[in-house]
Write a protein that binds this DNA or RNA. Structure first.
Lengths: 347, 347
DNA sequence: ATTAGCACTCTCCAGTCCCGAGTGCTAACG
DNA sequence: CGTTAGCACTCGGGACTGGAGAGTGCTAAT
């Protein structure tokens, strides 16, 4: 299934040409553009072979060639050279990060924005978290008579809050007592462990504990609601979205509630960057798009996922390098805050 | 500047027709559709007058008439009858709200979704807040050696958190002591008041206090970052966005960072619903769109803004009623949690 | 194996034509 | 006088046409 040297080289050229022209590339244009030591006829023969084997295709007789999913795949596996980002670029990105505030969702937004900008496609970055949320601390703050604010702090520094209504008026002292008791009883436990716990609770305490448990559980299964997305407008300006129909299609795909479906191996433990090209993704809706995904975070610990979404006609080497670098960088930053000192992988 | 009875009636019909057909309406079609007791020629005469006075216009000779901004304005002021929402609809909406969770941003998202769905346009709802954020309570939770999570609870039950780095390792006990002191010193104060305070602080306490102050300040000036937006896809499917250029235009306008500009009287104290039609909005970008805005919340206290954004060709009575009802409902819900019992305005 | 040559195909664009919907005017009518 | 019928006129949009340009696939010669 491997290609001859020359055909491989040709495929590579076709792809680079197509990636930045966005129009089918023909044999004649090819030799002119790259000053190939062959005539257009030879190229045509080679192209015919490449097409037979499924690496490129014809939109219709007599238009140039367009890379197929299989063509891109071969290119990504075997042909392209993934060179490091220019250190200039890296510096710029690092700089932006260090200027950012320290709120978690601020990072995540920033990461998405930086990524989207760098690769000129849409980028999604999820909030970091561990596999299972554990309670670190719970606080109750009185609001008025029968209502109080419940603040749940989880282990990886996630915080959630909600208003809680009680059947009777509650003094702050009582609220504090309840939270103290719960902190003592449930500190460090997960949602499941709390529900299995045998601790004796008053009616009121049970009311609060239940809310806490729900918060933990919803954090575990939620996830993509809290992802940041950027660059949608950028990607919509690409020529593949010239018709409003195509635009709506992409917008559909990027709807928040669809993300978990299209980004399947989101937080899979695997290291490194995964690329899914067109129909390789099982979701029909994604057949015209490619995904470049990576987990980020500390090994086995806290982390999230980042992904680039764009048309299959995408600058893969650049995209992959950028995702790799950025996920590493995010990992380092998380380490700084939550874990052992950074592993100093990259200079 | 007032219209004759007949012309007013005619304008009203033109608008309803245009609002649901989206195509310029002609004299002949008019008499057929509404079985008017006049001939098309008479209608043409009347239309000519309406056009002279600026209420409708011609895309080009020999297409039907289209309402102008002025036409819509007159319609909204004088012609349309704003009837109450069917109680069926109200019930449905109430129901959805009571099923929703109790997290604040969940409400806001829900409100935006319900609104967008009901009016078939894009809807924006901001998070509720008071004019000036005041500190209710601050908590510090140790994460590791030199880092801790700072949780700031503000008066109107807003919560923000961020990771704080200390120059030296910090035990939880020390953190608790610091937060206790700060709670005592700054509870109930605003950002400005904290910065003016003369309380003696240790170096470490000052570090934390400063972060708290920044959180309060950024909450006060932020705002639209935390708005929920829904229905963008719905509105993009309308015929006015048939070309991708128009779509990009709207997406531009709805970019998060643009919202404060286009929704100018966001949290103005005025009661009731405000309508801005096309060029009435000073922002050039909004000249093709209309806005229906309302404040929601408790009188003078906590509250936010909600807005519907769509093409000027919009079903104004329905939109206005829905915004009015929903802002009332949100107000009631806020009251339930933060204030005196609900004012029971609406059955 | 490579290439020149050539007939063929298909898209894209510009031009043309015509139809339909709608207008504005004029003259007639009750 | 307000209303109406009649009619010439005007556009926009869809259908059709005819190159021009880019590209292909095949064949025969090198």
């Amino acid at each position: 299934m491997s290609l001859t040297e020359r055909r491989a080289r040709l495929l590579s050229l076709i792809i680079s040409e197509y990636v930045d022209s966005a129009t089918p590339v023909g044999s004649e244009a090819m030799v002119r553009r790259f000053e190939l030591p062959f005539s257009s006829a030879t190229i045509r023969n080679e192209m015919a072979r490449l097409e037979e084997e499924g690496y490129i295709s014809h939109p219709h007789t007599s238009a140039g060639r367009v890379p197929s999913d299989k063509g891109y795949r071969y290119y990504v596996e075997a042909l392209m050279e993934e060179r490091d980002l220019p250190s200039q670029t890296k510096q710029t990105i690092r700089h932006q990060f260090h200027q950012a505030g320290r709120e978690e969702d601020e990072w995540v937004h920033l990461a998405a924005a930086v990524l989207a900008r760098a690769v000129e496609n849409a980028a999604v970055v999820t909030m970091p978290r561990t596999a299972e949320s554990r309670l670190k601390r719970v606080e109750l703050v009185s609001i008025q008579d029968t209502s109080a604010l419940l603040v749940v702090v989880m282990q990886q520094a996630r915080v959630k809050q909600q208003v809680l209504i009680f059947p009777e008026p509650m003094e702050q002292d009582l609220l504090t007592a309840i939270s103290n008791h719960l902190n003592h009883a449930f500190g460090g436990l997960s949602a499941i462990e709390i529900s299995r716990s045998q601790v004796q609770l008053t009616q009121l305490e049970w009311h609060v504990a239940n809310a806490v448990r729900e918060v933990l559980a919803s954090t575990d299964q939620g996830g993509f609601d809290e992802a940041a997305m950027e660059g949608v407008r950028t990607v919509l300006q690409k020529p593949e979205f010239a018709t409003s129909e195509k635009m709506l299609n992409l917008l559909d795909v990027l709807e928040r509630r669809n993300l978990p479906k299209i980004i399947p191996l989101a937080e899979a433990p695997g290291e490194g960057v995964t690329v899914m090209i067109g129909a390789e993704n099982e979701q029909d809706a994604m057949h015209d798009y490619s995904l470049v995904i990576s987990r980020y975070g500390t090994p086995g610990g806290i982390g999230g996922a980042m992904a680039v979404v764009g048309p299959t006609r995408m600058h893969y080497p650049r995209t992959i390098s950028t995702v790799r670098f950025l996920s590493q960088l995010m990992g380092e930053m998380l380490s700084t805050f939550y874990d052992e000192p950074p592993a100093a992988k990259d200079g």
